[in-house]
């Protein structure tokens, strides 16, 4: 039986890239982009992407009952991979759009780079030396593998992944940090607990290391 992967579609942005990257690494898998919670419940594994403003994302997630479907997926033990705003939506809250409560699966907040005094200090210091810390944090940055995880299999530590975001995750629980990154400040590039792995970067846009991570996800049994 070929694995059935549901890619959650809540109307925010283009899911073509992530679906085609999954199909590329798993030609036999059934990849289904869906906004039907029942299809998500029936899938063997779930991909939770996200792009855009968090308030709109959370509103659509709740309107389409994906908050419940995601909680059920997490409770079921099926592998779940969240990407970018998908990760941010799993946190307690985000300070984007004046403060938005999120799903609360991971303890911690999503903070704007430019709202951080430490980031602004680093940016001002950088400006003096000609190094500019632009926001969004856009491009290829190194991810330190803060713990061993099946999704890091075959990927060298400190490999570069493609990021594009203006808000970043500050985990309150150090134990769940799977990947760490630095851009003016330290932030969480990936969080993992039990059957959930959540990445700030875009594996579907991160060339061979990103494809390797997706391949690892397709073969993952959900055990850490």
């Amino acid at each position: 039986m070929n694995t059935h992967i549901a890619v959650i579609d809540y109307g925010m942005g283009n899911l073509h890239s992530v679906a085609s990257a999954l199909q590329h690494v798993a030609p036999d898998a059934q990849i289904e982009v869906t906004s039907d919670v029942n299809r998500v419940r029936e899938a063997d594994r779930v991909l939770f992407p996200g792009v855009g403003a968090i308030r709109d994302c959370m509103a659509e997630i709740r309107r389409l009952n994906f908050d419940k479907a995601i909680a059920d997926t997490i409770a079921s033990g099926k592998p779940l991979l969240a990407i970018c705003v998908g990760l941010q939506a799993l946190m307690d809250s985000s300070e984007e759009n004046g403060g938005v409560p999120c799903l609360g699966h991971f303890a911690g907040e999503v903070k704007g780079f430019t709202n951080s005094t430490e980031f602004r200090a680093a940016r001002d210091e950088g400006a003096a030396s000609g190094e500019r810390l632009k926001v969004p944090h856009m491009g290829w940055n190194q991810v330190r593998q803060a713990k061993n995880h099946p999704l890091w299999h075959g990927i060298p530590d400190n490999s570069r992944f493609y990021f594009v975001h203006s808000y970043c995750v500050q985990s309150r629980d150090a134990d769940v940090i799977a990947g760490a990154c630095h851009y003016g400040i330290d932030f969480s590039a990936a969080l993992a607990r039990a059957n959930v792995f959540a990445a700030q970067f875009h594996p579907e846009k991160s060339a061979e290391h990103g494809l390797q991570l997706l391949k690892n996800f397709v073969g993952w049994n959900g055990q850490p």
Binding site: G139, W140, N141, R144, N158, H182
Partner: peptide, 8 residues
């Protein structure tokens, strides 16, 4: 550790 300059 720093963001890489991109070649496009």
């Amino acid at each position: 550790m720093a963001l890489a300059k991109r070649i496009i």
